[in-house]
Design a protein around this nucleic acid. Structure first.
Lengths: 229, 229
DNA sequence: ATATAAGGTGTGAAAATTACACCATTAAAT
DNA sequence: ATTTAATGGTGTAATTTTCACACCTTATAT
């Protein structure tokens, strides 16, 4: 993707860490590179920032061009600026992340020829990635793991309606440890931002679980009053 | 300081948020600019990253050139990339912060002609700063305030030997609220990383308080065992 | 001696966290 | 019809943490 470096001596880029949750596993979105360097390697979706776009705008555009995904609520987490992190010149890259629902997401379809395709890979089964992307992943995943404890990140990964068991499975996948069922449910419900639905799970060969929705308005109310207190 | 922009179309810079604590007040280190744009304005110490230096190295060099301070343990907190944040071209800047002891610090003496002088200003009495530096300050200060709750930032701001009242005053200055004396002392001591000295405060016209030291080795032991648990 | 200014200390109530085990419900298989 | 397999759903007691709150002590200056 970097076969032609910009004419200036150094450049900015964006690399995106897009997390999804499917079949009880935490996954990350990678692209298969179609250009040197690192042709055929897996890499984080990333590319150069243009002269006249902000970092946030660039992140949106780049992710779209490489994966077909659009308008995700991405946030910056760290900037990587080692001198030799890119083999073809000085490139400083800003890491962004987002957590999204895999299912119901429209098909992944790179627009740019720099990516042959975009695929989901389990975070527990990652190969060595192009450039310093393995390090970028480690850093970002560590940050997100910490944020999970005080930000409602998990709900972005689940379908709109979910069971408490699904929610717990997701926490366990991110934190990489088992949680106590009763304590988990008690605590989650005590926050008051989960809305119990009448509807139940369907198509399971065992007792169907209640479905819940995340009520972002209530969450914000609770969160904001804590801030001002 | 930017009178001659680099020849490429865009550039990286570093801006530093250096906090100190003196006379019960939290302060920040500013420079008085000696060049257009924003000549004579106060600004955060900041300048361009060179082609062949990492961001971390650049931060050290730039802070030294503008203030005479060297080898502070600075950390990155956010990258600012709005298109028009700099009036003379596209400049993306990485924000770094450090917390240091003001007293015993050698004299502030800019090496570079871009800074006329470097001064400490109370965070409660900041004028409008050059560029988007007021915004960078707000963002960085907010992040540090949050980190104070789970990282031992405060000890970097105090002299090596300090009293519990000084420590509490510092927490109050950063968090901008009063804390309960008994609860604060109980909690701090319960962590077990404060080493009580035989030595007492001197030169005060009232009962001298015990002095304490922060024991970083013990802190790390406690912190690491929590991580692995 | 006395006035001043900060140093230093403990307890009880409330809230949050942790550990822990069994019956209920559903669909599929027999 | 019965059994089986798989998950759903629930409560309590012990412990720990947090919070609110007031008075005597000590060193110095006068």
């Amino acid at each position: 993707m970097e076969e032609i470096l910009p004419t200036f001596d150094s450049a900015f880029s964006i690399d995106c860490l897009i997390f999804g949750f499917d079949a009880g596993e935490l996954k990350i979105l990678l692209i298969e590179r179609n250009e040197e360097p690192f042709k055929d390697w897996l890499a984080l979706p990333g590319y150069f920032v243009k002269q006249d776009e902000s970092l946030d705008d660039a992140a949106d555009r780049i992710l779209y061009e490489l994966t077909g995904l659009r308008d995700l609520p991405m946030k910056q987490f760290h900037t990587f600026g080692e001198v030799n992190r890119h083999p073809q010149g000085r490139v400083i890259t800003v890491g962004y992340y987002a957590l999204i629902r895999i299912n119901g997401q429209k098909e992944l379809r790179p627009i740019s020829p720099y990516a042959r395709k975009a695929i989901w890979r389990s975070v527990n089964d990652l190969p060595k990635l192009a450039f310093d992307h393995s390090e970028i992943f480690r850093k970002g995943f560590g940050i997100i793991r910490k944020r999970l404890n005080y930000q409602p990140l998990a709900f972005d990964l689940l379908p709109e309606k979910f069971t408490l068991t699904q929610l717990q499975g997701l926490y366990e996948a991110i934190l990489n440890k088992k949680l106590d069922k009763r304590n988990f449910r008690k605590k989650m419900l005590s926050y008051g931002f989960l809305k119990e639905l009448v509807e139940k799970q369907k198509g399971v060969s065992y007792r169907a679980a209640k479905l819940y929705k995340f009520d972002r308005r209530k969450y914000l109310k609770i969160f904001q009053s804590e801030m001002t207190a």
